[in-house]
């Protein structure tokens, strides 16, 4: 079974775990290997965790994408939080303003094939990641 898109509201840590599971099932429906299902779920978990930690509230959207005969999953994590002040540093390992390990963003980039981040101070952050089958 494949879904075109699902949008998940992220507000508290239990939403993070549910989003990860939804992502795993979504990826499974697209035919991703078990290893990739967990990789995608972990990436979604990291992105959703960031929303809870820094923005309190946001959304994660999972979408099926196609390019030629390629199929993949796109994950959009969007919040209206404070934005990221020092983006180059936030993308480096072991940099964190949230009192945690600071591996979330660079780790997520390693887990996925494609990573794009846009952030505006005071307006919010949108991160788009993709993984192809």
């Amino acid at each position: 079974m494949t879904l075109d898109a699902i949008k998940l509201q992220i507000e508290e840590t239990s939403d993070v775990a549910y989003a990860a599971l939804d992502a795993k099932n979504f990826a499974k429906g697209l035919g991703f290997s078990i290893a990739d299902q967990y990789t995608i779920a972990t990436a979604v978990s990291e992105l959703a965790q960031n929303i809870v930690k820094y923005a309190d509230f946001g959304h994660v959207t999972l979408t099926t994408i196609e390019k030629g005969s390629n199929v993949g999953i796109e994950v959009v994590a969007k919040d209206s939080g404070p934005g990221i002040e020092d983006l180059p540093n936030a993308m480096e390992d072991k940099f964190s303003t949230g009192g945690t390990m600071g591996v979330g963003l660079p780790g997520t980039r390693r887990l996925m094939d494609d990573f794009h981040i846009a952030t505006v101070l005071g307006e919010g952050t949108q991160i788009v990641v993709k993984k192809w089958l």
């Binding site: 840590t13 993070v16 775990a17 990860a20 599971l21 795993k24 967990y38 779920a41 972990t42 978990s45 990291e46 965790q49 945690t100 390990m101 591996v103 979330g104 780790g107």
Partner: peptide, 10 residues
């Protein structure tokens, strides 16, 4: 536990 992210691992 099948999905372990950085927060859970920490």
């Amino acid at each position: 536990v099948q999905i372990i992210d950085s927060a859970l691992w920490t």
